[in-house]
């Protein structure tokens, strides 16, 4: 369980987040949506201890995040951030192996190697293993980082939940890989002990894949819950200042959003 209580974040006099409380349960995919400047990335940064909130607290498995050292947190929680740029040429496998750094000293162990290989297979980057990361396309780079953050939390930690936080993971990806990625993440959730929280822009992807949705607007929590509760005409209109058309499939499985 990952939760944040009454988070307020300020920069100067501007409130990036105001009194936001959220709870994310294991085994489910939680997606954060909202217009630009809503505070989505700020919330992710607060959740992963990158940013200290002015007020409020974050809890991992009921323990306050400040009681974890960076190293302890890295063993159970991995984060995919936006716009990763390498300063030196590295092979793809070297980048993926970094995901296992929290788990070994000196040389990688057999388990670390297995995690990297399986994660690379899982995200379809095994063929790129010996390529120079800097020569990859934007989408390929993104998939390499999927493998890296997945490798970091690849094996269930005994008795502890694992956490995967994704800040706009779908940028640079074409539709095929967007769907593939969301399906893979859903597959990873199968073990039941993984908490996945992600920021996405595409409301239709959120509608299709999310178990719960958090809608932020101007730093405030506008709605949270199932897609039926959050993706309402009123909420979407208020947040995005556009008139939505929401189409439901007859069997109730699919929800699609269009804008006039």
């Amino acid at each position: 369980m990952l939760s944040a209580e009454n988070i307020t974040c300020t920069v100067g006099s501007k409130k990036l987040l105001e009194d936001v409380s959220v709870r994310f349960e294991p085994g489910k995919l939680h997606l954060i949506i909202g217009p630009n400047g809503a505070g989505k990335s700020t919330l992710i940064k607060v959740l992963c201890k990158q940013l200290n909130p002015a007020e409020g607290k974050v809890f991992y498995s009921g323990k306050e995040v400040g009681t974890y050292s960076d190293a302890q947190l890295a063993e159970v929680r991995s984060v995919l951030s936006q716009n990763i740029e390498l300063s030196f040429p590295l092979k793809v496998w070297e980048v993926v192996l970094m995901g296992r750094y929290p788990h070994f000293n000196g040389k990688p162990k057999a388990a670390d190697e297995t995690a990297c290989k399986e994660a690379m297979d899982f995200f379809d980057v095994t063929d790129l293993a010996d390529r120079n990361y800097m020569t990859l396309s934007g989408g390929e780079k993104q998939r390499v980082h999927f493998a890296r953050v997945a490798a970091q939390v690849w094996f269930p930690a005994e008795g502890k939940a694992r956490y995967l936080l994704l800040d706009e993971p779908l940028t640079f990806l074409d539709v095929h890989y967007q769907f593939q990625f969301m399906n893979k993440i859903t597959e990873m959730l199968g073990k039941g002990d993984l908490v996945v929280v992600g920021v996405v822009h595409d409301l239709n992807l959120a509608a299709k894949f999310a178990d719960t949705i958090v809608l932020l607007n101007k730093g405030k929590l506008m709605a949270a819950g199932s897609k039926k509760e959050v993706l309402t005409k009123d909420n979407i209109r208020a947040a995005y200042r556009l008139e939505p058309v929401i189409v439901e499939e007859k069997d109730g499985k699919g929800t699609y959003l269009f804008f006039q």
């Binding site: 960076d70 302890q72 890295a74 984060v79 300063s87 970094m98 750094y101």
Partner: peptide, 20 residues
């Protein structure tokens, strides 16, 4: 050396990998 390696993908990312 290993922590400096992690720094190659960025300061925030290195911190996510457990580096102080």
């Amino acid at each position: 050396a290993k922590q400096l390696n992690a720094l190659m993908i960025g300061e925030e990312e290195a911190q996510y990998l457990g580096v102080n």
